[in-house]
C-alpha cells in the first residue's frame, strides 16, 4: 500500500468514527452497518474484482462467521477471539466453496457457488444445536478485549479498527506476487499458466483470504444485530454484496467502501424521505427495482463504478482507481497461445 492509501484509509475511518460516536445511536448504527458491509464487499472484491471468480455465496460465508462468533462468545470467550474464530471458519468454508473453481470457470463456477449458498442456508436451518434453527441464534452482547459491546456506539471502534486493518492488508496484498498473480488469473487463466503462475493455488488463496474477511464481517454483523438467523444470510445478501462491488467499481481500491456506503445508506435515505412524505410503503418496494436498475446501468456505462465516476469528476482526485476500463471479470484478455502451428 502507498503512504497516501494509508492516510486515506485512516482518515476515512477516523471521520466515520467521529460521526458514529458524536451523532447518537442511529448514526452509530449506520456507521457499523457501512463498516460491516464494506468488509464484506472488500472480501468479495478480492474474489471477484481482483481474482475474477464470480461467487454468489458470500452472504452465507458471513453467516458462517456470525454463527461461529456468536456461539464462541455465548460460551464465554472474548469477542476478539470469537471474531477470529468466525474468520477462520469463514476461510475454511470459503475454501470448500472455492473448490469447484479448480475445475470450473466463469459462469459454471458461479452456478456452483449458488449451490453452495443454498446448502449453507439449509445447514443454518437444520444444524439446530449450533444455529437454533429457523428462529435464529440469539447472541449475548460480548466483551471485546474487556470492553462490553452493549450498544451500537460501543461496536463502532472495533468494527472500524478491523475495517482499517483488513483494508490495509488487502492493499498490501495486491502489491505482492500473490496479488499480481490474482490480476493475471482474472484476465486469462491460459496466460497465467503460461507465465508460470499456479492458477489453482492463486484461486485457493483468494478464497481463503476472502473467506476470512467475510467471516470476520459476519461475526461483527452478528454482534451488531445480536442475532444470527437464516433470513439474514440469504442469496439476497450475496446479491447485495455483488451490487456493492459493481456500483463501487469492480477491482478498484476504494470501490468496496463507496459501494457499501451507497447500498446501505440509499435505502435508509429512501426510508426517511418516505416517512417524511408519508409514502414509505411504495418507496421501500422500489428499493429492489432501484438496485437492479443501477447495476444494469453501471455495467453498461461504467463498469468501474462510482470510483471511476468520482475520479472523472476530479482528474487527480481518487487516483487510486486504475485508469483504463475493464469489462466484467469473466471477460478474458486476449489468449496468448497462437493455436497449433
Amino acid at each position: 500500500m502507498s503512504a497516501r492509501q494509508l492516510a486515506i484509509t485512516v482518515g476515512v475511518a477516523v471521520l466515520m468514527g467521529v460521526l458514529g460516536l458524536a451523532l447518537g445511536r442511529y448514526a452509530a448504527y449506520l456507521v457499523n452497518a457501512v463498516a460491516i458491509a464494506a468488509l464484506g464487499a472488500l472480501s468479495l472484491n478480492l474474489i471477484i474484482g481482483y481474482c475474477g471468480q464470480i461467487s454468489f455465496a458470500q452472504g452465507a460465508l458471513l453467516g458462517v462467521g456470525a454463527y461461529t462468533a456468536g456461539n464462541l462468545s455465548n460460551a464465554g470467550l472474548d469477542g476478539a477471539v470469537a471474531i477470529l474464530g468466525g474468520g477462520l471458519l469463514g476461510a475454511a468454508v470459503s475454501a470448500l466453496v472455492g473448490l469447484p473453481a479448480m475445475r470450473l470457470r466463469g459462469l459454471y463456477f458461479a452456478i456452483a457457488t449458488l449451490a453452495a449458498q443454498a446448502i449453507l442456508e439449509y445447514l443454518f436451518k437444520i444444524l439446530d444445536p449450533l444455529t437454533n434453527g429457523v428462529s435464529g441464534l440469539v447472541i449475548t452482547p460480548p466483551t471485546i478485549l474487556g470492553f462490553p459491546m452493549n450498544s451500537d456506539q460501543s461496536l463502532v471502534v472495533p468494527s472500524l479498527v478491523i475495517l482499517v486493518l483488513a483494508w490495509l492488508a488487502v492493499s498490501r496484498l495486491m502489491r505482492t506476487d500473490l496479488g499480481r498473480a490474482f490480476l493475471v488469473v482474472r484476465e486469462s487463466e491460459i496466460v497465467a499458466k503460461g507465465m508460470g503462475i499456479d492458477v489453482s493455488h492463486a484461486k485457493m488463496q483468494a478464497f481463503l483470504i476472502g473467506g476470512f474477511i467475510a467471516g470476520v464481517a459476519g461475526a461483527l454483523a452478528g454482534y451488531a444485530n445480536r442475532l444470527a438467523s437464516p433470513e439474514a444470510f440469504t442469496l439476497d445478501l450475496s446479491a447485495d454484496y455483488i451490487a456493492m462491488i459493481i456500483i463501487g467499481g469492480l477491482g478498484t481500491w476504494p470501490g468496496p467502501l463507496i459501494g457499501a456506503a451507497f447500498v446501505v445508506l440509499l435505502p435508509e435515505a429512501i426510508q426517511r424521505v418516505g416517512e417524511a412524505a408519508g409514502i414509505s410503503d411504495i418507496l421501500s418496494a422500489l428499493r429492489e427495482l432501484a438496485f437492479g436498475l443501477l447495476i444494469i446501468l453501471f455495467l453498461i456505462f461504467e463498469p468501474r463504478g462510482l470510483t471511476a465516476l468520482l475520479s472523472r469528476l476530479r482528474p487527480r482526485g481518487i487516483g487510486a482507481a486504475p485508469h483504463g476500463s475493464v469489462g466484467a471479470p469473466g471477460e478474458s484478455g486476449q489468449p496468448q497461445e497462437g493455436g497449433s502451428r
Binding site: L183, E187, G194, V326, G333, Q334, P335, Q336, G338
Partner: peptide, 9 residues
C-alpha cells in the same frame, strides 16, 4: 509468446 496479452492494471 507470439501474441501479447494486455493485462489490465
Amino acid at each position: 509468446f507470439q501474441n501479447v496479452a494486455s493485462l489490465h492494471d
